[in-house]
């Protein structure tokens, strides 16, 4: 089943004569129950795209079909009803500073007309789920960033939404807190079946919890597919940059290299040492890392290519014989 269908969605901003095309002709189907990542560098149009999903930003053209209804064709009252089924969390948490934690979680229930007692009970259940029940009476200013985001998650889930939109929800958090928030999101997805759409500029976020990913650049989706496919075989230039981001530091860009991807149980060292022995050459490792994608280990390693093309061929032949995936290429700096 499809929760969201975006059809030739575009958004332009007009400001004092100049127009910015933040989102250009995006077509996307988002399946129910999945965790969907939208990744891209800063300014790619990710936030604008996700804000079009609940009409915080009104698209210039195209359709936003949510549960079969084009949000652009419905009345304001209907839109508010739909928004109750679309939760959203933000980089800056956006909690009500003058309400305590439990009253923050009650807010969406209050505006949906749920009775105070029922709302409070539901809020406490949600706070228990995000592990903050004992903070119910605290105020946002008394919480850490990670705790604030947990409250925001509980609040977003209060009206039992079908979808949870996350705009850089972990970008203001340290790596350990990021991981714990991402694990919480995964748990919510599995327990409640909520479709999650995650906007991020970090490949790590996508690798950790997403099933599907769309890569955005300059307002368009340049590549999309299952996360492991994209990781193993990135096609677009921008995707390669995102995937390699950690393995390769900036000073190495521009050199010719071979990217070797290991799937499952293969490990770097045995392959590398037999490569060195069998091809009778030294290799310069530019970088390497391992990732856990959908519970499976993946590794990538970048080696600098020797100048001698016969040696290069030898290396490739060796890798083919071991059925190790690799690709050749330099990235423009």
């Amino acid at each position: 089943m499809i929760v969201y269908q975006l059809i030739s969605l575009s958004k332009e901003f007009r400001e004092k004569g100049n127009t910015v095309e933040a989102v250009k002709n995006v077509n996307l189907n988002i399946e129910k129950g999945k965790i969907y990542g939208i990744i891209g560098f800063s300014g790619a149009g990710k936030s604008t795209l996700v804000r079009c999903l609940n009409l915080l930003e009104v698209p210039t053209s195209g359709k936003v079909i949510f549960n079969g209804k084009n949000l652009l064709n419905i009345s304001p009252a209907e839109l508010r009803k739909c928004r109750q089924k679309i939760g959203m969390i933000f980089q800056s948490f956006n909690l009500l500073s003058q309400r305590n934690v439990v009253d923050n979680v009650c807010y969406p229930l209050e505006i949906a007309g749920v009775k105070r007692k029922e709302a409070k009970q539901k809020a406490l259940e949600l706070l228990e789920m995000v592990g903050l029940k004992e903070k119910a009476k605290s105020y946002p200013s008394q919480l850490s960033g990670g705790q604030k985001q947990r409250v925001a998650i509980a609040r977003a889930l209060a009206t039992s939404p079908d979808v949870l939109l996350c705009d850089e929800a972990t970008s203001a958090l340290d790596p350990i807190t990021t991981t714990s928030i991402l694990e919480l999101l995964k748990e919510i997805n599995q327990k409640l079946g909520v479709t999650i759409i995650i906007i991020t500029h970090e490949m790590k976020v996508v690798e950790l919890i997403c099933d599907h990913v769309a890569v955005m650049s300059e307002g368009t989706v340049v590549e999309q597919g299952e996360v492991k496919e994209i990781f193993v075989n990135p096609k677009a230039e921008i995707t390669k940059k995102l995937v390699l981001n950690k393995a390769l530091d900036a000073s190495d860009t521009g050199r010719n290299f071979l990217r070797i991807v290991f799937e499952g149980q293969s490990a770097f060292e045995p392959i590398l040492s037999s490569l060195v022995l069998e091809c009778n050459t030294m290799v310069n490792i530019l970088g390497a890392n391992t990732e856990n994608i959908g519970g499976k280990a993946y590794g990538q390693m970048l080696i600098e290519l020797p100048k001698d093309s016969s040696v290069v061929n030898k290396i490739k032949k060796f890798l083919d014989s071991k059925s190790v995936y690799y690709e050749e290429g330099g990235i423009a700096g």
Partner: peptide, 14 residues
């Protein structure tokens, strides 16, 4: 903070 108002809007507030 304008983000708080946006969050309220996103939750379906009138």
């Amino acid at each position: 903070d304008f983000g708080v108002i946006e969050a309220a809007k996103a939750m379906g507030s009138s």
